[in-house]
Write a protein that binds this DNA or RNA. Structure first.
Lengths: 157, 157
DNA sequence: ATAAAAATCACTCAAAAGTATGAGGGCGAA
DNA sequence: TTCGCCCTCATACTTTTGAGTGATTTTTAT
């Protein structure tokens, strides 16, 4: 906004300057044009002046090229609690199914397989199957390792 | 692209302004001066052409001003791990011994009792005793719960 | 020095966790 | 429709974990 304003002001200023120069030339014309040989010089002066004027105008008004520099700024924040189902990319990349993730989440809360089974209304054997598959996909051997790795992968809160 | 466009627009505007000024002069000429018409137009054309030339030269030759814009980009980093032995106040308040805490820490890394025993150069039975005492002090029933509670209490990373 | 706390270890029994294998139904993609 | 994946459940077996009890040694604090 302020930039546009100053630009307009500049243009107006330049217009006035131009008018002044033309008047000056007019005056010079009256004073010296009688001298015939001065005509070429006059034209040359005009050309020179207005070329310089154009250059000056262009330099003044040209927008500077902006170069964007991205600066990485480290900000320590308690990792924002992701969605309730976090990092679906990671999940699908590893191939963990929704049900398996649910089991993992309840594991991380310290529930036993039996408790998880009751919570999810399925049998204990089902939970065992899920957890076995889970361990294989996470490449771990125990539930504690699964929880630890799950957190490292960002798929657990 | 848009930058060039606005620059061109500026030039056009300047040309129009110049024409207006010339018309003004023309009018002034009719009012107050007795001068050769063709000569005025000639001078105006010269001025216009060389102004344009100046602008063109400046645009073509001027090295672009660069202005650096710094953009801050937030990066989320897991808060740096606190002291290796955290929250001794909490530990003594609950009555967890140093050895018990060591066992808990290794538990949280997913080690089995056997592995913990080997790591600490003691027997499996010792680890079992430690963990049992640990569970009682933490008021939990399983190692997963112990780890979970340990983290909640801030005695684990 | 002595009592308390901590660390060590053993043994048994039970529960939980984990492995391996098979199998049936549902569901979406090829 | 067939194939693959997911979810479900079962059975059998092994390993790990945890509870309970008791004991010896070391460390620590009074």
């Amino acid at each position: 906004m302020g930039k546009n304003f100053s630009k307009n002001k500049l243009i107006v200023f330049y217009g006035v300057l131009l008018a002044a120069i033309l008047l000056l030339l007019k005056w010079l014309e009256f004073r010296f044009l009688i001298v015939n040989h001065a005509f070429e010089v006059y034209i040359g002066a005009i050309a020179l002046i207005f070329t310089g004027l154009g250059i000056w105008l262009a330099i003044k008004l040209a927008k500077p090229k902006t170069r964007t520099v991205v600066v990485e700024k480290e900000i320590y924040i308690t990792k924002p609690t992701e969605s309730i189902i976090p990092q679906e990319k990671t999940l699908s990349k590893i191939g963990i199914s929704k049900r398996e993730w649910e089991v993992l989440a309840l594991m991380s809360e310290g529930l036993s397989n039996q408790e998880i089974a009751e919570r999810l209304f399925v049998s204990l054997n089902t939970i065992k199957t899920h957890s076995s598959n889970l361990f294989e996909k996470l490449e771990v051997k125990r539930r504690t390792q699964a929880v630890e790795k799950g957190k490292r992968l960002g798929i657990l809160a």
